[in-house]
Write a protein that binds this DNA or RNA. Structure first.
Length: 455
RNA sequence: GUGGAUGUAGUUCAGUUGGUAGAGCACCGGAUUGUGGUUCCGGUUGUCGCGGGUUCGAGUCCCGUCAUCCACCCCA
């Protein structure tokens, strides 16, 4: 028979059991954190009608979306979780209670070239708060504080949530009379860290920005320092543009509230260069990077939008949200060696090895263990003893229970701890108690504790 | 979409100016049929990505093709 060579498509992540367990732990941690802030879970279809997903039309989305037809239907895989949310909210606006706080964790698809830290299928973990007509500025500070909490709960320390305000940028470019080209200029300005000030200036001038304006722009994006220092420096532009002034006030407030929410000063930074990929945002914008791996790019970004569902409804639904690129984050953590196999718990706590043909006693014991919340499995395969022990050893199962003729006759089970090699004969009930005592408690961090950096 | 690299065992890779394939790890068996990790002994891994060309002879050189990786674009 001609065999087909098994393969996994480029840009699609497929994990082995140990890593998958770590990934699942991340998902659980995020769900817990999100729920803690009053967000309700949401799931939407992976496939939507193309007209829904491309409502906004044009650009990168159209080039990268996975699109196909089934009969007459023109269908596409979702590109992000925000557009499906917009559709959902527009469709169910009458039945939802606002402000609507939802979280959603799911896979999204982008048909672009895969590379380091960039996938074609990846998980996003989104939270959004949608208001009906209005939405208070407080939410713009709360969202990044949730990210701070979520990352901290994951055991991460070396990250920075960078904050900016779109109104400051548009206001500023308006002052220079460059608002028509603001998007393009912002993308160039965003490369400051990567290519340096001189290159940015060259690019701006090559794009036809007047020399004087280019200088102004470099002076503006070159504003650095502590959050207070940046805010103070921005004050000198006040009074020239209404939008700018509004954005500056908002940024002041967001920074103030972020501190009140308990976000450590060194984990968020006002950064006037961030703007890319955020074209539908209208106010506060966020972008989170891993301090040790800035080249991988953003692992979490989002911001404030004034009208989420404008393509689907007349109802004005402002919102603020953020999306964690979970797959990328997991990839970065793996590269940094933060995912320690030692911390992965085995799929079971006890492996039961029946030594007799009749498995009844083993089955009863397994049931008893499970009723006591002890994860167990029976290994009944006709294999050599060595192979059975090796199985437990490879999976990291901490206890093996032997049930042979002697044990059945004596009404006991023989429990062996693989870590110490000790073994004792106990009555099944006592065995449950002893095993429970020896098991580690839940809630281990994803990261090795000793690798934590003092914050 | 643009540019640059790389495809050899399950995996990571070696393979000399061209002479019909090798190592570590993994896997399987044994030392050890009711006791794993360590050790020792033995064993199997293959369309050398695919197609064509040059040559007496190609894993090696040439052309094409596909795939993967890296960078750009863009993005989580």
């Amino acid at each position: 028979m001609e065999r087909i060579k098994p393969r996994t498509l480029s840009g699609f992540m497929e994990l082995l059991p140990k890593q998958q367990v770590q990934f699942e732990r991340m998902l659980e941690s995020l769900r817990r954190t999100y729920a803690l802030y009053g967000f309700t879970p949401l799931d939407t279809p992976l496939i939507e009608a193309t007209e829904i997903l491309l409502a906004k039309g044009g650009g990168e989305t159209e080039k990268q979306i996975y699109r196909f037809s089934k009969g007459e239907a023109d269908l596409s895989l979702r590109f992000d979780l925000t557009v499906p949310l917009a559709k959902y909210v527009a469709l169910h606006a009458g039945e939802l209670t606002f402000p609507f706080r939802r979280f959603q964790i799911g896979k999204v698809y982008r048909g672009e070239r895969a590379q380091r830290g960039r996938f074609r299928e990846f998980y996003q973990a989104d939270i959004d708060i949608i208001g009906d007509g209005k939405l208070d500025l407080l939410n713009e500070a709360e969202i990044p504080s949730i990210i701070y909490r979520a990352f901290s709960e994951l055991g991460l320390e070396k990250f920075c949530i960078r904050v900016n305000n779109r109104k400051i940028l548009t206001g500023f470019y308006d002052m220079l009379g460059l608002n028509a080209r603001a998007g393009e200029i912002m993308r160039t300005a965003d490369k400051l860290d990567k290519i340096g000030a001189e290159k940015v200036e060259e690019l701006l001038i090559a794009d036809g920005v007047p020399l004087a304006s280019a200088h102004e722009i470099l002076g503006f994006i070159g504003i650095t320092g502590s959050n207070e220092e940046i805010l103070t420096a921005l004050e000198k532009y006040r009074g020239k543009n209404e939008t700018f002034d509004c954005g500056l006030d908002e940024l002041h407030t967001v920074v103030k509230y972020l501190t009140a929410f308990g976000v450590a000063e060194d984990h968020f930074a006002v950064d006037l260069t961030i703007a890319r990929g955020l074209d539908y945002y209208t106010g506060t914008v966020y972008e989170t990077t891993m301090t040790d791996h800035p080249e991988i790019g953003s692992v979490c970004s989002g911001g404030r939008y004034d009208n989420l569902a404008e393509y689907y409804t007349d109802r004005k639904l402002p919102g603020v949200g953020i999306s964690i690129g979970l797959t990328r984050l997991f990839y970065v953590l793996g590269e940094q060696g933060y995912l320690n196999d030692q911390l992965v718990t085995a799929p079971a706590d006890v492996l039961i090895l029946p030594m007799t043909d009749d498995l009844s006693t083993a089955i009863s014991f397994a049931t008893q263990l499970r009723q006591n919340g002890i994860r167990s499995q029976i290994y009944a395969e006709q294999k050599k003893f060595k192979a059975k022990m090796t199985y437990a050893d490879k999976l990291g199962i901490p206890y093996v229970a032997f049930i042979g003729e002697d044990e059945i006759t004596g009404g006991v089970v023989k429990i062996k701890s693989l870590a110490t090699g000790e073994q004792v004969s106990l009555r099944p009930t006592d065995a449950c108690t002893e095993i429970k005592k020896g098991l580690p408690t839940d809630g281990k961090p994803i990261r090795e504790p000793e690798k934590r950096i003092e914050g």
